[in-house]
């Protein structure tokens, strides 16, 4: 379980996170939703200790972050995170070199699933293929948790479908996933839990199934209610 407890973050005078708390469980897909600038990426960065927080704490399976945590949690950022002059094969080699939890079999499987060419240079990849490669590098790690930052933003429809397919496959099964997005349509049916963010606080936090069962509303309905106010 990833526990985010009352975290705060300021950029200069601007408060980006103003006491955010939520939990994300293993075996569930938790979705952080908020308009751009709501601090979604900052939360993921904070979980991975890529940016300091000014208050609160983050626990992973009850422990604070340390270097072994990176063998348990993988972050798939919305950016190119390998050197552009590397080929996909070299990027995979790099991961294999440093991570004990690297699963070569799964990596090869993903490679053919995404139809990526290992000899291709990262600098020449399309936006969609870059996202796929990032996903590959994260998913091929036998980690308990996956954090994905905007995996669907700015990529073509076919790539989106392919990526969405991943979520229902054995590649995700049993792991805990936190994804951020500002558009919910493609994945509404996939997600188990929603954390709605606005102005640096959590304004609503619910399980989609409960919502559907108890109130008969979709996630989009709730978002409308919340953001139109």
């Amino acid at each position: 379980m990833i526990e985010v407890r009352d975290i705060k973050k300021k950029f200069g005078r601007k408060k980006v996170l103003n006491g955010v708390s939520f939990t994300a469980n293993k075996g569930e897909i938790t979705c952080l939703i908020g308009i751009n600038g709501a601090g979604k990426t900052t939360i993921l960065n904070a979980i991975m200790a890529l940016t300091p927080i000014s208050g609160g704490e983050i626990l992973i399976n009850g422990e604070k972050l340390h270097k072994e945590t990176y063998e348990r949690v993988a972050f798939i950022p919305d950016a190119i995170t390998m050197l552009p002059q590397m080929t996909i094969a070299e990027a995979m080699e790099f991961m294999k070199d440093f991570y004990k939890k690297w699963n070569q079999k799964r990596a090869d499987e993903l490679l053919s699933f995404f139809r990526l060419k290992p000899e291709e240079r990262i600098s020449s990849l399309s936006k969609g293929n870059t996202a796929k490669m990032n996903l590959l590098l994260g998913l091929a790690l036998d980690v308990e948790f996956l954090l994905m930052d905007e995996p669907f933003s700015g990529i073509d429809i076919f790539s989106r479908e392919q990526i969405a397919e991943v979520f229902t496959s054995h590649l995700i099964e049993g792991r805990g996933v936190i994804i951020t997005t500002h558009e919910i349509n493609d994945i509404e049916h996939l997600i188990d839990k929603v954390v709605l963010l606005d102005d640096g606080i959590v304004i609503k936090d619910f399980h989609t199934e409960e919502l559907r069962a108890q109130e008969g509303k979709s996630v989009v309905d709730v978002m409308r209610e919340v953001y139109r106010q």
Partner: peptide, 16 residues
């Protein structure tokens, strides 16, 4: 630049 390799470096399972 276009790449942000620092993500990768900081997330390596080793003492920073």
């Amino acid at each position: 630049g276009k790449n942000t390799f620092i993500y990768r470096l900081l997330m390596l399972p080793t003492a920073r």
